[in-house]
Computed example of a mutant assay.
Amino acid sequence: MSRFRLLTLLSTLLAFATLGSPVRAERALAQTSNRPATGQLQVPAGGVLNLVKELNLSRDQIQRLQQLRKNAQGQNKERRQALQIARQELAQLIQGNGSSAQIRQKRQQVQSLQREIADTNFENTLAIREILTPEQRVKLQQVLEQRRQNRLNSK
């Protein structure tokens, strides 16, 4: 499975988890459909609700996904902020009078933070996998592949 597909899987399920129930999902989708993009995951109208229906997630699964998303948000928020700062500092060192040693050290810090974020995303993907039944995993892959094909065909 490609990294993009894993991140798509994680984003889709974690976005669903924040919505809680199909009724709240419909309300949230109705409220966000007219909002401008803010860089956060924008769920197309019906996307999450259709996923809920297609995967037939139980209340327990929904609650576990919500908890997973809550934990993941905290972990990644701090790392992403640190990564953004480290990237800015690296750019300043490269543009300024930073020594080669300083630049290498900052680059290693950036790479380390990127690796931590990727590792966290991977662990969350594995946790989602454990929440889903084997049948739901297969169905999710089919749905994501179909959505990917639809996006490619619409371009």
Rank of each mutant, 00 (worst) to 15 (best):
Ser2Lys: 02
Arg5Gln: 12
Leu7Val: 00
Thr8Gln: 10
Leu9Gly: 06
Leu9Val: 00
Ser11Ala: 13
Thr12Ser: 13
Thr12His: 07
Leu13Tyr: 07
Ala17Asn: 04
Gly20Trp: 00
Ser21Arg: 04
Arg24Gly: 01
Ala25Arg: 00
Arg27Cys: 01
Ala28Asn: 04
Ala28Asp: 04
Leu29Trp: 12
Ala30Val: 07
Ala30Arg: 09
Gln31Ser: 02
Asn34Asp: 09
Arg35Ile: 00
Arg35His: 09
Gly39Cys: 06
Gln40Asp: 08
Leu41Phe: 10
Gln42Asn: 12
Gln42Leu: 12
Gly46Ala: 13
Gly47Ile: 12
Asn50Cys: 10
Val52Ser: 15
Val52Trp: 15
Arg59Leu: 11
Arg59Trp: 07
Asp60Cys: 02
Gln63Phe: 01
Gln67Arg: 03
Lys70Phe: 10
Gly74Tyr: 12
Gly74Ile: 06
Gly74Asn: 07
Gln75Ala: 07
Gln75Tyr: 03
Arg79Ser: 06
Ala82Tyr: 06
Leu83Trp: 09
Gln84Lys: 14
Arg87Thr: 04
Gln88Gly: 05
Gln88Lys: 07
Gln88Asp: 06
Leu93Gln: 07
Ile94Lys: 03
Asn97Arg: 08
Ser99Arg: 09
Ser99Leu: 11
Ala101Asp: 13
Gln102Ile: 02
Arg107Trp: 01
Arg107Asp: 03
Val110Gly: 04
Val110Met: 03
Gln111Leu: 12
Arg115Thr: 13
Ala118Trp: 15
Phe122Val: 12
Thr125Lys: 14
Ile128Pro: 15
Arg129Met: 15
Ile131Asn: 15
Glu135Ser: 15
Glu135Gln: 15
Gln136Pro: 07
Arg137Glu: 13
Gln141Lys: 14
Gln141Phe: 12
Leu144Ile: 14
Arg147Met: 09
Arg147Ala: 09
Asn150Arg: 10
Arg151Tyr: 11
Asn153Trp: 02
